[in-house]
Amino acid sequence: MSPFTKIAAVASIEFRVALRNRWLILATGVMTLFSLALTFSGAGGLELKAGILTLAAASLATLSVYLIPLIALLISYDSIAGEVERGTMALVMATPISRGALLAGKALGLIAVLAIAIAASLTISSAAAIFAYGMDMSGLAAIVRLGLTGLLLGAVFVAIGLMISVASPRAGQAAAVAIGVWLVATVLYDLALLAGILADKEGVFTKALFPYFVTANPGDAFRIFNLAGLENAAPVSGLDGIANTLPFSPLYALAGLFAWLVAALTAGYFQIRRLTP
């Protein structure tokens, strides 16, 4: 049997455990509620300069930056540290599966959970919007783009969550670190950048460095890529204004997300090779 069979075996077990622990239903439920709420609240004062789904894509891009990393970290932080703590990991690691295949299988199983949650929530909210307000083709493309890049964002944070989980001796500690990472990545990083702009007053930081700092953050990179794709069709504010004035192609933001994914998986791989269950 090839290593892929073993990766698939780990992924399928990881997915089943997430399913039976109600993570899948919880993630799908929360995301569906939020996307329905944002889709229809965006349509409130609808003076249709842009289609309903375009507006929804803009507000979902902003919300997903918080929600997707949070769910990704919640489903992954326990995945390895918890198994080591409960004693289930020693048995798995005694079998002839490579540590890399084990990490890859776990990542794939958890990403599958996110894929279903994202696809289901966007499908339900978009179908409801189309049913209520009619078709919006360009908006639908924006939603598809949002879903695919949202999955990439989720994969990045699953990889980060697994990396935290491998490096933590206890599941409780992994949880604390994961919440810390989430706070920094989604809130504190942006606040620090805003503080930098206010202090800098149109200096070198604001003009030359700021766009790079923003795209270096996976959440911001995801948001900027999606908002840039809407081409001014939806109103943006705050940090997101940069989406329309990037000094480089938004594709670099996407490349940044891939780079995060590769970096987190690589770091996790080197950690799991040294793990003693």
Binding site: K6, V10, G87, T88, P96
Partner: peptide, 21 residues
């Protein structure tokens, strides 16, 4: 010995059989 609590005995044996090729 510990196994994921949410899995059945059949699932556990199937899983470990696959890990052991």
């Amino acid at each position: 010995v510990a196994f994921p609590r949410m899995l059945t005995g059949i699932e556990i044996i199937t899983y470990f059989a696959r890990l052991k090729s």
